[in-house]
């Protein structure tokens, strides 16, 4: 999994709504990188539209306290 959606962050955030707020607040930051990703069905087919998601490696650095500067 290369990207984490708000639903993936919901257990730590408490609610999906809070996770979306996190992503919205991180959009303007250089770290962690939040990008728009195509929405996919469970079978991998695109179902239309995009969704905000944080890069999984950036999130891993975030929770381990590794601040990565923007390239």
């Amino acid at each position: 999994m290369t990207h984490l959606f708000a639903e993936d962050l919901a257990p730590a955030a408490g609610t999906v709504r809070t996770a979306r707020r996190w992503l919205a607040a991180w959009r303007d930051l250089p770290f962690p990188r939040v990008v728009q990703v195509q929405r996919l069905a469970p079978d991998g087919q695109p179902i239309g539209g995009v969704q905000w998601a944080v890069r999984a490696d950036d999130y891993d650095d975030l929770i381990h306290g590794r601040l990565r500067q923007a390239a």
């Binding site: 730590a12 955030a13 991180w26 930051l29 770290f31 975030l62 929770i63 306290g65 590794r66 601040l67």
Partner: peptide, 17 residues
């Protein structure tokens, strides 16, 4: 390392960890 993170990111570090 958490203390060096920006405040908007720091709130997610602890529960995420």
């Amino acid at each position: 390392g958490w203390k060096k993170l920006p405040a908007v990111v720091q709130v997610a570090a602890k529960p995420g960890y």
